Simulated assay, not measured.
Amino acid sequence: MTATTFAEAQAWIVSVGRWLDGKGWAPATSGNYSARLDDGSFAVTVSGRHKGRLTPDDVMRVDAAGASLDGKKPSAETALHLALYTLFPECGAVLHSHSAANVGLSRAAYAGSYSFAGHEMLKALPGNPTHDASVAIPIVDNSQDMAVIEAAIAPRLLAPGAAPAYLIRGHGLYGWGKDMAEAERVIEAVEWMIAAELAERSFRG
C-alpha cells in the first residue's frame, strides 16, 4: 500500500480522469476515483464532475466514515471505495470505469461472474504470473443502496485467489491496487480482456 499527500492524490486523480475519459470509459459525469492519504483520510472525486475535465478543485477529502472534510459533496459511491480500503489495508487507490463493453458484458446472461482464461493480459493482475490461468471477475447486482452492494460483494472479494476487480451489473467496473499505477493497470487489463472476448465472439460468428 502506498499512501500519499492530498496534493499528490489530486494530481493523480486529475490525470487518471483524463486518461479514462480519453478511452471512452467515463461518459458524461460517470465514474469515481479515490486514493488513500498519508494522514488516514481519503481523496475522492467530487460528485457530478466530468472526469475528462477534472481540476484539483474537483478532488476532495473524506474521513474513514465518508464524511466530507472540506464541505464538498463526495461521489455517491464513496462508501464502496471505503469498503475496499477496509477489506484490503494494502489498497492505496480505487478506480471505477463505465465502458460500454464492461456494462454490456455485465448485462448479458451470465450468472455471478465472468471468467477470463488464457489471456496474456492476466499477467497484469497482481499475484498472477502466467497467462495459463483462469480468473473469475465477480458480477453483483446493482442497487441505489451502497450497503446492499457492499454486503453482496465483500465475501466474494475475500475468497482465495480473488482478483482485485468486480463488476456491478449494468453499471460498471471497480478495480484497485496498492497505488494508482497498479489500479490503472488492473482496470486497463480487465477492460482489454473484455474487449478481446467480444472481438473473439465476433470473429467466431
Rank of each mutant, 00 (worst) to 15 (best):
Gly66His: 07
Val44Cys: 10
Thr55Trp: 03
Val62Asn: 02
Gly66Ser: 07
Ser47Leu: 15
Val44Leu: 15
Ser68Thr: 14
Asp38Cys: 11
Gly48Leu: 06
Asp57Leu: 11
Asp38Glu: 15
Asp38Asn: 15
Met60Pro: 06
Leu54Met: 13
Leu54Tyr: 06
Ser68Lys: 04
Pro56Arg: 11
Asp63Val: 02
Val62Pro: 04
Lys51Trp: 08
Phe42His: 03
Pro56Lys: 12
Met60Phe: 02
Thr45Met: 09
Asp57Gly: 12
Asp70Gly: 03
Val44Ala: 08
Gly48Thr: 09
Val59Trp: 06
Asp63Met: 02
Leu54Glu: 03
Arg49Gln: 15
Thr45Ile: 06
Phe42Leu: 08
Arg61Lys: 14
Ser68Ala: 12
Gly48Ser: 12
Asp38Lys: 12
Arg53Trp: 06
Asp63Thr: 09
Leu69Asn: 03
Val44Gln: 03
Gly66Gln: 10
Lys51Met: 09
Asp39Arg: 10
Asp57Ser: 14
Pro56Asp: 05
Arg53Phe: 04
Ala43Asn: 11
Val62Cys: 04
Gly40Glu: 05
Asp58Pro: 14
Val46Ser: 09
Pro56Phe: 07
Gly40Met: 07
Val44Tyr: 03
Ser41Asn: 14
Gly52Phe: 12
Arg53Pro: 00
Gly66Val: 06
Ser68Tyr: 01
Ser41Asp: 10
Asp57Glu: 15
Thr45Trp: 05
Gly66Thr: 02
Lys51Glu: 08
Arg53Ser: 12
Ser68Glu: 00
Val62Asp: 04
Ser68Trp: 00
Val46Ala: 14
Ala64Glu: 15
Asp58Phe: 09
Asp39Tyr: 12
Ser41Ala: 13
Phe42Val: 01
Phe42Glu: 03
Leu54Ser: 13
Phe42Pro: 00
Ala67Thr: 14
Arg49His: 11
Ala67Phe: 07
Phe42Asn: 00
Thr55Ile: 04
Ala43Gln: 10
Arg61Met: 04
Arg61Tyr: 05
Thr45Phe: 01
Thr55Lys: 13
Gly52Arg: 13
Asp70Tyr: 01
Gly66Ala: 07
Thr45Arg: 10
Leu69Gly: 04
Asp39Trp: 07
Leu54Val: 08
Asp38Ala: 15
Val44Ser: 06
Asp39Thr: 11
Asp57Cys: 03
Pro56Tyr: 06
His50Val: 14
Leu69Val: 01
Gly48Ile: 11
Ala64Gly: 09
Asp57Pro: 06
Met60Tyr: 03
Leu54Trp: 10
Lys51Asp: 07
Asp63Leu: 04
Leu54Ala: 05
Asp38Leu: 11
Ser68Cys: 04
Ala65Leu: 07
Val62Ile: 13
Asp39Gly: 09
Met60Ala: 10
Ala64Pro: 00
His50Lys: 15
Asp70Phe: 00
Thr55Cys: 08
Val46Thr: 15
Asp63Glu: 08
Ser47Asn: 14
Leu69Ile: 01
Asp57Gln: 14
His50Phe: 01
Asp38Arg: 13
His50Tyr: 07
Ala65Val: 03
Arg53Asp: 04
Lys51His: 07
Lys51Tyr: 12
Leu69Lys: 05
His50Gly: 13
Gly66Tyr: 02
Ala43Ile: 08
Asp63Pro: 02
Lys51Ala: 07
Gly66Pro: 12
Met60Thr: 15
Ala65Met: 09
Val62Tyr: 01
Ala67Cys: 01
Phe42Cys: 02
Arg53Val: 07
Gly52Val: 10
Ala64Gln: 13
Asp39Glu: 12
Val62His: 05
Ala65Gln: 13
Met60Cys: 09
Phe42Ile: 05
Leu69Thr: 05
Met60Ser: 14
